[in-house]
């Protein structure tokens, strides 16, 4: 584990996966903002909270997360997509964005976070 403790926004509607992410981040020493289970909630959190990075489930209760991604991108906040669809889950302009396919192990999450943070700084 490197770095500081990050404030990470988590958007994931599946409660079990949200729990898992929470536990991982917790174990890594990061602080969780949310988790939000709906895009509307996430947008609200983006507007009101500050955080360093976001973990975004692509398909949140039937909605696509891209509006949130747009917001984050415009704010320059890095994020990682969490996908149950594999690389094919990303569409259009988001192809090539940092992504972590589900299921993932804690190690993979840690690595991905590092990469993204390093890239962002």
């Amino acid at each position: 584990m490197t770095g500081r403790s990050l404030r990470i926004l988590v958007v994931e509607d599946e409660m079990m996966i949200a729990f898992f992410i929470e536990d991982c981040l917790d174990a890594l020493g990061h602080t969780i903002v949310g988790p939000a289970s709906r895009v509307a909630n996430a947008l609200q959190l983006v507007a009101t909270e500050s955080f360093d990075l976001a973990l975004l489930d692509i398909n949140v209760a039937g909605e696509e997360i891209y509006p949130v991604a747009h917001e984050l991108k415009s704010r320059g906040i890095p994020f990682v997509f969490l996908s149950g669809y594999g690389s094919r889950g990303l569409s259009g302009e988001w192809v090539g964005s940092p992504m972590l396919p589900k299921p993932f192990v804690a190690g993979d999450l840690e690595t991905r976070l590092q990469t993204v943070i390093t890239a962002a700084t």
């Binding site: 599946e14 079990m16 996966i17 729990f19 898992f20 536990d23 398909n59 149950g84 669809y85 594999g86 396919p101 589900k102 299921p103």
Partner: peptide, 18 residues
């Protein structure tokens, strides 16, 4: 299907871990 399997695995992973 893919998604669902992945989700199920992730859920089981979470159950196991917790």
């Amino acid at each position: 299907l893919n998604h669902r399997v992945k989700n199920t695995l992730a859920t089981v992973q979470s159950i196991a871990s917790q």
